[in-house]
């Protein structure tokens, strides 16, 4: 039985100062560590937008949410902006249940 295969791919548009992270897998306390290291390694000193494309994330729990809160705070501290796109319905429901859909920019 396969474990959680969690992958992140990043595409950079230097001209627009956008980094798009394509997240693939289940976001729980185990994979949240991978998300943290991948994003934190690529945070610039100032003024970039970071987009998390969650189209391939079918599962998210409070540990994954907590990591997203941490990343948003870190990105804001670096004068950047975090945007979360393409949330699946079960994942969006977790944001709504915890009222974090207002805290994040979601589209």
């Amino acid at each position: 039985m396969e474990a959680n295969v969690f992958k992140i791919e990043c595409k950079v548009d230097a001209e627009k100062k956008i980094k798009i992270f394509y997240v693939d897998g289940e976001l729980d306390i185990q994979s949240a560590k991978t998300l943290k290291s991948e994003v934190m390694d690529l945070i610039e000193s100032t003024g970039w937008t970071y987009e998390l494309n969650m189209d391939q994330v079918a599962y998210l729990d409070s540990s994954g949410l907590g990591m997203l809160v941490y990343l948003k705070k870190e990105i804001t501290r670096h004068n950047g902006k975090l945007r979360i796109v393409k949330l699946n319905e079960p994942v969006l429901n977790v944001f709504k249940l915890t009222k974090l859909d207002d805290f994040f920019e979601i589209s």
């Binding site: 729990d61 409070s62 540990s63 907590g66 809160v69 977790v94 249940l97 915890t98």
Partner: peptide, 9 residues
Amino acid sequence: KEGGLGVFI
């Protein structure tokens, strides 16, 4: 906060 939501959920 970054935690404390598990039992709430």
